[in-house]
Write a protein that binds this DNA or RNA. Sequence first.
DNA 1: AAAATACTTAAGCAAGTCCTTGACAATTTG
DNA 2: CAAATTGTCAAGGACTTGCTTAAGTATTTT
Lengths: 111, 111
Amino acid sequence: MLNYQLDKTFAALADPTRRVIVDRLVQGPASVSELAKPLPMSLPAAMLHLKVLEESGLVTSEKVGRVRTCRIDAKVLSQAEQWVGERRQMWERSLDRLGAYLDQTKPEDQP
Amino acid sequence: MLNYQLDKTFAALADPTRRVIVDRLVQGPASVSELAKPLPMSLPAAMLHLKVLEESGLVTSEKVGRVRTCRIDAKVLSQAEQWVGERRQMWERSLDRLGAYLDQTKPEDQP
DNA sequence: AAAATACTTAAGCAAGTCCTTGACAATTTG
DNA sequence: CAAATTGTCAAGGACTTGCTTAAGTATTTT
């Protein structure tokens, strides 16, 4: 059950520069140069990061005149959150089952 | 505010092979060869994936005799979930504020 | 002790990532 | 129209990733 979407989403989030861009975009939409300004790199480099974010679906953009406006797409963000959350929950349930099993098989150990 | 931990966690989760390993480990601990068996690659390749998971903190392991047993560490999983969740929430709040603003400035547009 | 099991290390290679500089649109603004 | 603004494309270089095979080591098992 391969999920290429998650590959791209997690890979996009693995880079600190791209997380800074996401941090900015969750406050609201922004232009390319507005996003690039605080970053310690050239504009083309910043655009490559934006491209990665767009290809992951985390960010969409639209060009009007000479300005491209970028915004977050929460659906993809939610998918990633859900994948991690499900696994965390499964692991916690495993631990619960183990606890219950130990309580049941060795109740005499409890004071 | 750089966070190397998140770099490593998201990078680890970006690979489908490593997500398969995580999927297995949330069911409970497993040995290296048990984890490698279903994977379409050599054992050394699988071990490299395990190394990435360990360096991210998502997985810990302990060797007893000749068997290394691996298990999930939920703390790191939770951190990743939390990062994504916070951003999703911030973006939703931004949308809410925009909605409230529009309602306030153009109430006459509502039928 | 010999053989099987479980893991580890090393060398090497193809492909991908992240950044640079330089040149080049396309669209306002003066 | 000329100049400034905003974004894009292309070539290339340093580095990392994900795999391979071959050759170990350490620990049971027979």
